[in-house]
């Protein structure tokens, strides 16, 4: 396997795995406060799925000769990144629905093509992940639909969540395909290697085209006065996200970057004695078996 191909895959799979486990935080933020026991069960199951996705993806990366410990070390020392979307705070219950609908919706748009990417272990992990993400997206939509059909306060909560999550969700597809910001990106090479199959702007357009009719069913207003159907193109025209903000958040200056990383590092550090104990216990049992 060419070294550059291997490195690119490790970077991408690790970033994806890190996004799953950091993404547990903004959603986990509402487990204790979920407004019904049914929603609490759905959310617990969802966050558990995210941990499971992290596990498959770290396992997929291990097939390329890198351990989970090494990858976590890279995350904890900021040498590898995770999706910038999780650096935004979940301020109300409706944010949990908005993450399911928009963030998981954008993730699926990005990830479905990966089920046919050139590296088998990654492609196969993505098959299961996409099935679960698709379920999460419907659950998020259904949670928001319940709010928009509820009291005025619930409907306002849903609209406020859409207002805050719309542009960060559009930014999840990365920088635009053209213009000065494209230089230094990985798109062209990754497309040649069959890791990436569609460009950022193609995927962003696909997401907008899918999501606008869903917002109409919800009765919510997408916060873009220039959003309109373009019959000539057969697509919606829309205002792009603020890419300067995207780059600021990627570089570490988003609302929750420091909080998310500190939480992750604290969980890892606080748990070190537990992992050490498990390793010591396993070593004792191995020694006993060998002695016997």
């Amino acid at each position: 396997m060419p070294e550059a191909y291997r490195k690119t895959l490790i970077r991408q799979i690790a970033q994806h795995a890190h996004s799953e486990i950091i993404g547990m935080q903004p959603e986990g933020n509402w487990i204790s406060r979920a407004p019904s026991l049914r929603r609490k069960a759905i959310l617990l199951a969802k966050v558990q799925d995210e941990a499971g996705h992290g596990l498959y993806l770290y396992a997929a990366a291990e097939t390329l000769g890198v351990s989970r410990d090494q990858l976590l070390e890279q995350l904890h020392t900021r040498k590898q990144k995770y999706s910038s979307i999780f650096n935004y705070p979940t301020l109300t219950w409706a944010d949990v629905g908005a993450i399911g609908w928009l963030v998981d919706g954008a993730a699926i748009t990005n990830q479905v093509p990966l089920t046919r990417c050139s590296y088998g272990p990654y492609a196969r992990a993505m098959v299961r992940i996409c099935k679960e993400e698709s379920f999460h997206q419907r659950q998020g939509f259904e949670a928001l639909l319940t709010l928009t059909r509820g009291t005025p306060a619930q409907k306002a909560m849903a609209q406020d969540a859409l207002d805050r999550w719309w542009y960060p969700s559009l930014a999840m597809f990365g920088p635009p395909d053209t213009g000065e910001q494209v230089s230094g990106g990985h798109t062209e090479q990754s497309m040649r290697w069959g890791i990436k199959r569609f460009s950022n702007d193609e995927l962003r357009q696909r997401f907008v085209d899918m999501t606008v009719p869903q917002s109409e069913v919800l009765g919510l207003t997408i916060p873009d006065p220039d959003l309109r159907w373009n019959a000539e193109r057969g697509h919606y025209d829309f205002t792009p996200p603020d890419y300067d903000e995207l780059f600021r958040v990627i570089k570490g200056d988003g609302p929750c970057n420091a909080q998310r990383l500190a939480h992750r590092v604290a969980a890892h550090t606080d748990g070190a004695w537990v992992r050490e104990a498990a390793a010591a216990y396993a070593a004792k049992r191995r020694a006993e078996t060998e002695a016997a």
């Binding site: 547990m24 941990a51 499971g52 989970r68 748990g271 537990v274």
Partner: peptide, 16 residues
């Protein structure tokens, strides 16, 4: 309360 705070990922899954 343990979710996203467990000593390892397997325990996040197990406790949830």
């Amino acid at each position: 309360e343990w979710v996203a705070r467990a000593p390892e990922l397997e325990e996040d899954v197990a406790l949830a």
